[in-house]
Amino acid sequence: MYSEFDREVGEMRVEQERQARIDAARAELKRQGREQCECGATISPARRRVHPSATRCLECQEIAEKEAYLK
């Protein structure tokens, strides 16, 4: 049978592996960027050339920056 310690170590490993997969997915998104914005609009090729990791179209990015500035 497994001890409480073994169970806790196993749970920690599972959580570490899950977090590593999340971090890798986030890094991939930042590296590659996207062709479509979160709103569904296409991110222009010019914007993707200038900012390859873009995940928002220019309009959504402007809104996000305004909201962040006003906080």
Rank of each mutant, 00 (worst) to 15 (best):
E17L: 13
A25L: 05
E35W: 04
Q61V: 03
K71E: 15
C37W: 01
A25Q: 07
C37M: 00
T42S: 06
E4I: 07
E35T: 05
P45S: 08
E38Q: 11
E17H: 13
C37A: 04
A46H: 07
R49F: 10
R31M: 01
A20L: 08
E4L: 06
E4A: 06
V14K: 12
R26A: 13
T42E: 09
R34E: 03
Y2T: 09
E28N: 05
R49Y: 09
D6Y: 02
K66H: 11
P45Q: 04
E35H: 06
M12F: 12
Q32L: 13
E38W: 10
E4M: 04
T55Q: 15
E59T: 14
V50Q: 15
E8Q: 15
G10A: 14
R34I: 00
Y2C: 09
A41C: 11
K66W: 12
E67K: 12
G33H: 01
P52M: 02
V14Y: 14
K66T: 10
E17F: 05
R18W: 09
A46E: 12
S3R: 10
Y69T: 13
S53Y: 04
D6T: 07
K30V: 03
H51P: 01
T42P: 04
A41W: 02
K71P: 07
R48P: 00
K66M: 10
R7W: 07
E15H: 08
C60S: 00
I43R: 00
I22Y: 11
R56V: 03
E28F: 01
R7Y: 07
A24C: 04
E65S: 08
Q61A: 11
C57V: 00
R34T: 02
E65H: 06
E15P: 01
E8S: 14
R26V: 12
E65P: 02
E28R: 03
R7V: 13
K66P: 01
D23I: 03
R56F: 08
S44E: 07
